[in-house]
Amino acid sequence: MILRLCAIELLKVRRSLVLLMTLVCPLAVVAMVFGMNLRNAAPREATPEQWNLMWAGVSAMWSWFMLPLYVALATSLINGNEHRNQAWRLMLSLPIQRWELYAAKAAVACLLMVSAHLVLLIAVVGLLFTLGAIGYPLAGAFDVNPRAMLWAAPVAALPMLAVQHALSWRLRSIVPPLAVAVVATFVSIQLGRSDLWPLLPWTYPLISTNAGDAALRLDALALALGLAVVLFPLGAWWAGRRDVV
């Protein structure tokens, strides 16, 4: 039933804003970071250090800033499908359990987050190849640490997604979940530099991808996974107990 519900949730996002955001958010990060760096670089003289800076810039901008906002938007829009026009009543009068719908929506939000992350990586690689084709030297351009960049951010964002999903499931308005995301993102700048970073899941994506210490990166990932394992079932249990009004 969960798989069927996931297929239905994917059907519901057809022609919707959430798909557009899945493309726009990562592409905006790539365009911004590459634009800023290449604007100041001498034409066709990019060095390996500059490419590394660009990878790090994309990673940091995505993990710290855009990914939390994208997750807040995606979960709000996915749950907004039901909040608009009281469609909860339509869905939950079908022979399904409330926790199953909650889980399916969470799964689709995760899938969209991974898709957005893949768009980001494909856009960076595609842009690098394009630059190479027009004469930029690509020496060192692909010399990145794959452990840090290629998969860590979406995994580390799972607890954040669990919180945003619960908020969006419960609240009809899109404003409180987005406000939480914005405030938490800015608080994570300070908290991410202190020993208190484990207290705020919004710090995990940045630490898991950009921290200099490999052990710290692994700590952030382990903490994220552990918290996600607790938060998702807890949310599904809570959602299953609530009345629909």
Partner: peptide
């Protein structure tokens, strides 16, 4: 059931 949801999912 038809429970006050005639406008659900206008994008579909």
């Amino acid at each position: 059931f038809l429970i006050e949801a005639p406008s659900a999912y206008p994008n579909l």
